[in-house]
Nucleic acid binder design. Structure first.
Lengths: 142, 142
DNA sequence: TATTATTTGCAACTCAGTTGCATCATGAAG
DNA sequence: CTTCATGATGCAACTGAGTTGCAAATAATA
C-alpha cells in the first residue's frame, strides 16, 4: 500500500477509463500488494477498517475484470480468487499449482507452458490456462 | 440407461469395492449415459421420478470421486460438473473447452496436450489439466 | 434369519455471491 | 465555483449449491 501503489492504481483506473473512486483505489492497491490471488474476504481483511462494503468489493472486482485489469484466477471451495492480469498474455495465463497435501494454490509465474494450436475440430481456441496438481516444496520434502 | 450400462455400473462398483445400492447404480448409469460433465441437478432430472434424494446424489458422487471412478470436471457458476474418470490418465485429464459466446463447456477428448515437466522449482507436478477458451464450432462460424 | 455397519432421506442449515433500492459522489457542462 | 446527470456505493434481504445431524432403512456377513 505504498505511495507508488497509489500512483499505479490511479493510472490503472485511467487506463481503463473507470471513475476514480475510493473503493476502486483501495481494491486495486490491495491487489497490487498481494503476491497471490485473493478473495473478497482477504481484500476486506487487508484493508482493515477502511474497507468498502462487501457488495462494493464484488462489484468493483467485476468492473475491473470486465476492463481486463483483473482475472478470476480460480474457484476454490466455492470461493473466487482474484488477481491482477498484468502477468498474463492475451492468449495464456500463467499456470496455477495446487498442493494436494496442504491445499495451497500458488502462481507459477516463471513456468513456460507450451501453447496449443489455435484451432481443433472447428473450435477456435483463444486462451489457454493450465492447472497443476502435486506437492509444493514444503510438503514434498520429507 | 441400457442393459450394458447396468452391467458396467455393477462392475464399476465392484471394482471400487463399494456396496451396490440402488442410488449408486442409478447415478453411475446416468454418468455412463452422459456425453458431457453433468451436475447433481442434471443427474436428478435425467433419472426422473426414480431419482434418489439430492443429498444422496452428492454423497454418492463424493464416494465415487474418492474411489477414483469420477472426477469433478470443473466448477461453473458455482456448480460442480462431474464426469467419469475413464477418459483421463493418471497424469493428465482431457482438456475442457468453454465457449465465450454461448457459455457451453465441452470435453475435447481427442485433443493432445503436451505434458509439462514433472518438477519445477521444488514443486512436484503429478497431474495437469488444461482449460481452453474461445468459440465453439456453432458460434465460430459467422 | 439375526446382527451390525453403512447408506439413505428429510429437514434445517451455511455462506459466498446477488439483487433492489435509496443515497451519495464523480466528472462534465455551464 | 456551482449545477446536474450519470454512475457508484451501502444496506438489508435474498438466493441456491452444497452440507450437516440424525433417525430410519438396507446391504453384507455370521
Amino acid at each position: 500500500m505504498s505511495r507508488s501503489g497509489e500512483q499505479t492504481a490511479l493510472s490503472l483506473l485511467e487506463e481503463a477509463s473507470l471513475r476514480r473512486t475510493k473503493p476502486r483505489l483501495l481494491v486495486l492497491q490491495s491487489l497490487l500488494a498481494a503476491s497471490q490471488p485473493v478473495t473478497q474476504e482477504q481484500i476486506a481483511e487487508q484493508l482493515g477498517d477502511k474497507t468498502p462494503n462487501k457488495v462494493t468489493i464484488y462489484r468493483t472486482l467485476e468492473a475491473l475484470c470486465e476492463a481486463g485489469l483483473v482475472h478470476k484466477a480460480f474457484l476454490q471451495d466455492r470461493t473466487w480468487h482474484f488477481e491482477l492480469a498484468h502477468n498474463c498474455s492475451e492468449h495464456q495465463c500463467h499456470p496455477h499449482f495446487t498442493c494436494t497435501a496442504c491445499g495451497q494454490t500458488t502462481c507459477l509465474m516463471d513456468m513456460q507452458v507450451p501453447a496449443v494450436k489455435s484451432s481443433h475440430n472447428g473450435y477456435t481456441i483463444q486462451r489457454q490456462r493450465m492447472q497443476l496438481e502435486g506437492l509444493c516444496p514444503q510438503c514434498g520434502q520429507r
